[in-house]
Design a protein around this nucleic acid. Sequence first.
DNA 1: GCCCCGCATGTAACCGTTTCCATCCCGCGT
DNA 2: ACGCGGGATGGAAACGGTTACATGCGGGGC
Lengths: 357, 357
Amino acid sequence: MTVTIRDVARVSGFSVATVSRVLNGSGPVKDDTRQRVREVAASLRFSPNVAARSLSTRRTHTLGVLLPDLHGEFFSEVIRGVDQAAQAEGYHVLVSSSHNAPAEISAALATMHGRVDGVAIMSPVIDARTLAAELPPTLPLVLLNCAGGQDNVDALDIDNRGGALAMVRHLVALGRRRIAFLCGPEGNADADARLGGYRDGMRGAGITADPEWELEGDFQQTAGLAAVRKLLATSPRPDALFAANDAMAIAAMSALRDAGLRVPEDVAVTGFDDIPIARYMHPALTTVRVDIAGLGARAVRTLIDAVARKNEHARVRATLATELVVRASCGAGRGVVAEGGINSTLGRGNACRTSLA
Amino acid sequence: MTVTIRDVARVSGFSVATVSRVLNGSGPVKDDTRQRVREVAASLRFSPNVAARSLSTRRTHTLGVLLPDLHGEFFSEVIRGVDQAAQAEGYHVLVSSSHNAPAEISAALATMHGRVDGVAIMSPVIDARTLAAELPPTLPLVLLNCAGGQDNVDALDIDNRGGALAMVRHLVALGRRRIAFLCGPEGNADADARLGGYRDGMRGAGITADPEWELEGDFQQTAGLAAVRKLLATSPRPDALFAANDAMAIAAMSALRDAGLRVPEDVAVTGFDDIPIARYMHPALTTVRVDIAGLGARAVRTLIDAVARKNEHARVRATLATELVVRASCGAGRGVVAEGGINSTLGRGNACRTSLA
DNA sequence: GCCCCGCATGTAACCGTTTCCATCCCGCGT
DNA sequence: ACGCGGGATGGAAACGGTTACATGCGGGGC
């Protein structure tokens, strides 16, 4: 039924060993032989059995990607970057999402074991130490946007603090003082760092921030709606709302308008991520650009490198720069105004900056 | 180094066959034995080698998903539905995108061969007959949004024509007559069907549509910008713009505003898909709802069923209903007004309707 | 008491590659 | 002429499971 390497061997008159060598380009083979084997393989439409191959080689040519969620453009951009880089390197991508609790992540990792050569985990809630501990130390692993402290594992993150700080400074420069912050989920590393940047910015500007201005959120759109409801009840009302991500900022703008307020005149609204759709909002969303797809692509390249070096490479720790993108929703003119990011600190040389669009 | 089933056998004092039976719940095993084996397996942290298993069983417990693209919320919703359904069934998901040309799809399929138990292909450009012909007939395959005519393969699509027709009728009912249509990519099945619905609607309303009103597009945001530029040059100017998807509609709204026109007063703008962000636009986007995630989930369930039946099941052919969602961008009040979809036609019983959000 | 049946378990043959090692052959140096 | 090195090839043992088949054993029906 299915044609195996043995069939190719039989028909071509050579042994399976030779056929294998031809097909993998390993070992010395005469040109005639190579050609003959190739012909037969093609005519038989031979396609090597992946399972058998990886049983033998212990390589799957597949990378796993664990995401906390799949809602919204943010994650689709991550996957896009991952997929692109993986395809370029001849790798496949196994995705799995909805992993917010450490236990779920462990479970997902367990089921991926043996299916993948390496795993990228984006989980702003995981305790990386626990994770690395229970994992086979030979499995290449790259952590995206995880909370600090691990040395034995590759880690990529975003300059959340710098980006948020730059945004607050920008709002202050525009004359806003009562700047509210719409938080991400508690315990989420990205969210915490962005909140930290906000606080730094407020303190730096000498503004005594009202604790009421720190609104609960979870990166989802509905949180934007809820936050606005709360915000409308406060007095004096904030004159700016800085959301920890674009999805919430967009929903907040919508809710503010529904409440009869003007953006940016009454309340400036800004976000974080610069998802592709942000520029098409009305008013166009001022935000902090993150090269999301680039992050995904970088993760893949890091993994592939780790695979090649049998996970004995020097660990990578990089922070991707962010960039303030000023549009209309903050009440200023258009254009890129300032870099939000402190420069990347890299484990291995080549600098990585977010690209300008 | 790695612990195999033989280790578990040795330590527990039973044979590999028994261990295998315990671990797979196949064959009869005494309770004591079962328990003992489980204990040992757990204490040894045994995790079966996936490659070995699938070499023997010829099952991978993985499904492949081929997408044309990964830009925007549409595809992230597809993946979300797929991932969710797959996880629920204990399957993994291999994604691969950027396959627009038939040749690329074939290539991607070839590299997936043996890695997956079935494949869902969303490719509105593929000629399904060619495809099915060159594929092993035993590989379960479900085509999403593909152009018609194949009998030997499962196919799911969306009631594009009905949805578009309903939208045009709605616009006409609101008094718009000069309705422009922003097309999707040429040769794309979804795009063609939506265009067909638009034409039907115009004809049905007795409007002689100006050919200039059919604007070129490609489902990407930049096409929305370009279309508006063209549209501004026409005279008399259309009083409505119906875009073949939300991404273009959103960009078009942005461009219209930049040109000083009011939406919906001067030009009504509507889209198709109802991506999650559509409701947060300003004005909120009137569109045709498609249960995108549901489509992905359904594809997965279809595949898993096909796998279970060794691909000898009755082929499924279903059209998912769509639903007109009226918001503000068309110049009407809020709310769901009418069903756009003709009822599903199903190969196998249970009806599938898009759910209300 | 014997036979037969069926449950619990073990043995070993697969699944389709890769790869180590042996073999063969050819040409070259002495 | 002969040994030697090395390139080309073949044989067979992994890799780690699943599973068909064999085996042993206890119990019930006669």
